[in-house]
Write a protein that binds this DNA or RNA. Structure first.
Length: 500
RNA sequence: CGGGAUGUAGUACAGUUGGUAGUAUACUUGGUUUGGGACCAAGUGGUCGCACGUUCGAGUCGUGUCAUCCCGACCA
């Protein structure tokens, strides 16, 4: 149950509360299945908020949802050479379709007679099964584009797992699009990367840097992989979402051709893009403090919790009357409210408990407030408390939630930017990489140099950043230089970091 | 798959040279409390991961086995 301790690396203070958080806040716990994850109700509620928002953004960019099979014939995977090389090592394989009672009669064994002619693999990603399907859907330019997304689980038999960041089974969405032209497909891949970046920054309040992956880090089977890279509180990078321009690789592997307006046939151009429950890991690792989770209001399952403090039933009744009105008005404004009038926990316990869960705003009303017509407002991000009149509290809370969303993002942004550095020499690089953060350095563009740096420092190239006026100037430095290791010419600085 | 560690109550742990299992917390009951994780009293709960062995006797020693965690390689 050490996932939050693991995720946050704040062992000293966290050891005091992470067990409580995991147990009571129902975030998640490791199941008995190797590297799999139980996402308990409260954690899942956060995932649902993420899902809903992303789904809206996909629909707004013209996409529709579909669903494809969990099991993929083994032979499909090997159609695309790079793809199979990338995923073959981590596939769970289905070899039989039946069990039978064992000879002793006290258990079951795999029935050898039920061996499959061709083994099935549990999808590690769905490109192959989807493109084998698209072959039947696409004949003409009139059939294009196809803009499908699927919400699903996938399985990758990783050597080593980490809660949220790398579980063997995980939930995600994967978009798979088919286009008539290269330009349209490239534009799609860029568009979806922007959707991811907007979601991360505006909803998760996690600042990210968009960029393109080096050849080594590219998705197996893609021509280009675009990424959003986030910085955790411990100075390690986290790839939080990727969008791939697949070229015609999968169309060729599955023979998906179409006839264009001139009557010529050509292979279809493709993209795929995905984000996973890893985003929840990012959310936890970027914002949490020693009191527990800090959720951006836009993703908090409970945005406002109201706690009454009372000595007897009459007081509770009087408080509840006031609170019910406030809660109803807040809900009518689209704010999710929980009124916790349970009498089996003391107020102090409730305060601490909702802080662990990251509930953005807490309202407290007691006898004192009843008399004065006030209530206490606490904001989770700064833990500041103030006593305000009941009159107009709804508008105040609404504004506060907006302010907090901004504040949490700005805080994370300032923190992230403080982790961005630039170095000129390899010695300097080795020194800085130990401290963590994004490090901009010159690179000669070769896989050999990249591999050597990874071998010697454990740092990888996170991306070649895209031009964005909001990024620190240091990221946008496109002046040529020389590689810090080999001294060969370098077109521009790229981002290195140690990563999860 | 290599290196290291750990398996004891729901959870987190202690258990000395082998002598028949304990602390905290949680849970149940009763009472007093309630503006920052309450207190008092009583109570429930464990064939000590599993198997075999050594021994009069094993949580403790030995062998095997399974599982989990950490560090690598691999990866989103």
């Amino acid at each position: 149950m050490a996932e939050l301790k693991q995720l946050t690396k704040r062992s000293e203070n966290y050891s005091q509360w992470y067990n409580d958080l995991v147990v009571k806040a129902d975030l998640a716990e490791q199941s008995a299945v190797r590297g799999c994850m139980v996402i308990k109700p409260y954690g899942y509620a956060i995932w649902e908020k993420i899902q809903r928002q992303l789904d809206d953004m996909f629909k707004a960019t013209g996409h529709v949802n579909a669903y494809f099979p969990l099991l993929i014939p083994k032979s499909f995977l090997s159609r695309e050479a790079e793809h199979v090389e990338g995923f073959a090592k981590e596939c769970a394989v289905v070899t039989h379709y039946r069990l039978k009672t064992n000879d002793a009669g006290d258990g079951v064994v795999v029935d050898p007679a039920a061996k499959l002619e061709e083994e099935l693999i549990i999808r590690p990603t769905s490109e192959t099964i989807i493109w084998s399907t698209y072959k039947n859907w696409i004949h003409s330019y009139r059939d294009l584009p196809i803009l499908c997304n699927q919400w699903a689980n996938v399985m990758r038999w990783e050597m080593r797992t980490r809660p949220f960041l790398r579980t063997s089974e995980f939930l995600w969405q994967e978009g798979h699009t088919a286009h008539a032209t290269r330009e349209e497909a490239e534009k799609e891949a860029q568009t979806m990367l922007k959707v991811y970046a907007d979601f991360a920054e505006q909803f998760m309040a996690v600042p990210v840097i968009k960029g393109v992956k080096s050849e080594t880090e590219r998705f197996a089977g893609a021509l280009d992989t675009y990424t959003i890279e986030a910085m955790m509180q411990d100075g390690k990078a986290l790839q939080s979402g990727t969008s791939h321009f697949l070229g015609q690789n999968f169309a060729k592997a599955f023979d998906v051709q179409f006839t264009d307006k001139e009557g010529k046939t050509d292979y279809v151009w493709a993209t795929s893009w995905g984000v996973s429950t890893r985003l929840m890991g990012a959310l936890i690792m970027v914002h949490s403090d020693d009191n527990g989770l800090v959720l951006p209001p836009k993703l908090a399952p409970i945005q406002v919790v109201i706690v009454p403090i009372y000595k007897n039933e009459e007081q509770l009744a009087a408080i509840s009357e006031k609170v019910n009105g406030i809660a109803a008005r807040l809900r009518s404004m689209g704010i999710s409210v929980k009124y916790d009038d349970s009498d089996n926990k003391r107020p102090g316990f409730k305060f601490a408990d909702y802080e662990l869960r990251g509930v953005p705003v807490r309202l407290v009303m007691g006898a004192r407030d009843l008399e004065n017509g006030t209530l206490e407002v606490m904001r989770r991000d700064t833990l500041e408390k103030e006593t305000l009149p009941i009159e107009g509290i709804e508008e105040y809370v609404q504004k506060l939630l907006d302010d907090m969303q901004q504040n949490i993002f700005q805080k994370a942004l300032a923190y992230r930017n403080s982790w961005i550095k630039s170095v000129d020499t390899y010695d300097e690089f080795k020194e800085e990489i130990e401290k963590g953060g994004f490090i901009l350095a010159h690179w000669d563009g070769t896989a050999e140099t990249e591999a050597r740096i990874k071998e010697e420092t454990k740092a990888t190239i996170r991306c070649v950043p895209f031009d964005d006026p909001n990024y620190p100037a240091i990221c946008m430095d496109t002046t040529p230089g020389v590689d810090m290791v080999t001294g060969k010419p370098s077109a521009r600085r790229v981002i290195f970091a140690r990563a999860y």
